[in-house]
């Protein structure tokens, strides 16, 4: 229920609002200007031959490469492949991580038993599992999915577990004094109070999911943006490498903003 703002402000406050609006506009125009300047310098320096466009590519060559991928009909195939692996891997990692964190919160004994294992798995560079993953999962999408999940799941678990454990002791005391069961503690307090931590975990895991899927595609793959990057590097087509990287930037940013949007929907109005 949003009421229309009909308050009448003083001249000084109107001035303040105007100044604030101008400030926001300035920041945005500088952001866009900076991007245009960098792209322009990049383009100019390759056009004038200051640097070799073969080695550093250029905005116009990237645009041409993307256009030709589109004409060949493979652009959306590669994007779709990576996007699918990333999103599904992200969803599985988040769901499993959340579930494991819940289980570890529930039983202190299980938590103590598993703690050293989690610490070690967290510290292990997941890329070291590459050869194992190829042997176990073959060279298809499932190998890449596995990589995406394993990169994200530990982070999701540790992030949520620490949030669950840090639940306000006094609020727990309050609920216990009302006679709350452990399940009620969980549903009435622990889960809702950890919502901000859940959102920040999603933000971290967006990055993790892209790391996982692209890393997976480096190891095994016949398609996807990571595959384009590796292939482009091998045949020395840096335009292709740059184009795929550019598309990755756009997709990762888009996914991050979706999470920010979700945050606005979920935690509006209720923050302290």
């Amino acid at each position: 229920m949003k009421k229309k703002d009909t308050r009448v402000f003083s001249a000084e406050h109107r001035k303040f609002l105007k100044k604030r609006k101008r400030n926001i506009a300035l920041v945005w125009s500088l952001r866009i200007g900076l991007l245009a300047l960098l792209l322009g310098l990049w383009e100019l320096s390759t056009q004038l031959g200051w640097v070799d466009a073969f080695l550093v590519s250029s905005p116009s060559r990237i645009a041409k490469t993307i256009a030709s991928l589109y004409r060949e009909g493979t652009l959306f195939y590669h994007i779709g492949t990576t996007l699918w692996e990333t999103l599904v891997g992200f969803a599985i990692a988040v769901a499993v991580g959340y579930g494991v964190a819940l289980a570890l919160w529930w039983s202190e004994t299980v938590r103590k038993v598993l703690e050293p294992y989690i610490v070690v798995i967290n510290a292990l560079p997941k890329i070291a599992l590459g050869p194992l993953i190829i042997i176990w999962f073959g060279t298809g999408s499932s190998a890449i999915l596995f990589m995406t999940v394993i990169v994200g799941v530990i982070v999701a678990t540790m992030h949520m577990l620490s949030a669950f454990i840090e639940t306000d002791k006094n609020k727990i005391l309050l609920l216990r004094s009302m006679g709350a069961s452990k399940l009620q503690l969980l549903t009435k307090l622990v889960i809702p109070s950890s919502l901000p931590a859940f959102i920040s975990m999603l933000k971290v895991n967006v990055g993790m999911a892209w790391i996982g899927s692209v890393m997976g595609e480096y190891i095994v793959s016949r398609a996807g943006l990571g595959y384009l990057i590796v292939y482009g590097g091998q045949v020395f087509r840096l335009d292709l490498v740059m184009s795929a990287t550019f598309i990755l930037c756009v997709l990762a940013a888009g996914m991050y903003f979706l999470v920010v949007l979700l945050e606005k929907l979920l935690v509006k109005n209720t923050e302290n």
């Binding site: 006094n170 609020k171 309050l174 809702p192 109070s193 209720t270 923050e271 302290n272």
Partner: peptide, 11 residues
């Protein structure tokens, strides 16, 4: 039971 802080749930 009533505690030092109100402990109202912000959500």
């Amino acid at each position: 039971y009533m505690l030092q802080k109100d402990e109202l749930f912000r959500w």
